[in-house]
């Protein structure tokens, strides 16, 4: 079982070795409603922790997606370009946004685990 961590901005990151996979949470996709477009970072881009990495759009809103940790983008999820609805269907699985090579794995320590995130979301409702 790989380690999944969460941010207060509702991104998740799953880490395997020095690679992290990033997406948005089920709570986030619920808040946004029907996702119509996702703008993803190009491989090779260097991202600072908390920096703007992607944009996710519904009909009436656009939201920035921030990277939970710093790193260099290695890959993005092509499938989302044609099927943005995947974000609504499987936000925390098939609809990952991008992968990055972690610059500083120690940053993970500052993120929430599943239990803490669930608690955090409960506080928002």
């Amino acid at each position: 079982m790989s380690d999944v961590r969460f941010t207060k901005d509702h991104e998740w990151i799953r880490v395997e070795g020095d690679l992290g996979t990033v997406g948005i949470t089920d709570y986030a996709q619920h808040q946004l409603g029907d996702i119509v477009f996702v703008d993803l970072p190009e491989p090779g881009r260097d991202l600072a922790q908390g920096g703007e990495a992607a944009v996710v759009e519904s009909v009436k809103a656009a939201s920035e997606v921030y990277t939970p940790v710093a790193g260099t983008v290695t890959e993005n999820n092509d499938a989302l370009a044609d099927q943005p609805a995947l974000v609504n269907q499987s936000p925390e699985d098939g609809a990952w946004f991008f992968r990055l090579r972690l610059a500083d794995p120690a940053q993970l320590a500052g993120l929430m685990d599943r239990a803490a995130y669930d608690e955090y979301v409960k506080g928002l409702e």
Binding site: F37, E57, S58, V59, K60, A61, A62
Partner: peptide, 12 residues
């Protein structure tokens, strides 16, 4: 495609 526009994206 209104998310390009000012009433949604404001300064962006």
């Amino acid at each position: 495609l209104s998310t390009r526009e000012q009433h949604i994206r404001r300064e962006k």
